[in-house]
Amino acid sequence: MKKEDTVKLISAEGFEFVIHKDAAMVSQTIRNMLTSPGGFAETEHGEVTFPEISTTILEKICKYFYWNLQFASGKQTEFHIEPELVLELMMAANYLHT
């Protein structure tokens, strides 16, 4: 993975997830962060901190990003969500415009 193809997502607890930009851009919000003109900090450093998203949720989100890419390319599998994560995950989804 080349550095410029990836993005680092940092959770509230400081865990870092390095994923492909393509995957991250499943989120419209992250897409805007990475592509907005004028050079915001995130665009320049290639990392985004989410102080309001916990590690567990962020991990699930990253998994979802990759699942979504596969789903879009025709691989129809199920995405399993633990019931206890549902509420928080939904709030995050609203925030990330996913």
Binding site: T29, G38, G39, A41, T43, V48, E52, Y95
Partner: peptide, 20 residues
């Protein structure tokens, strides 16, 4: 800052979160 071409130091996530 944006109008003054000074945006490079700004954190998109923070601004987005605030507006949100």
């Amino acid at each position: 800052e944006i109008y003054n071409h000074n945006a490079s130091g700004l954190s998109f996530e923070e601004l987005y979160r605030n507006a949100y």
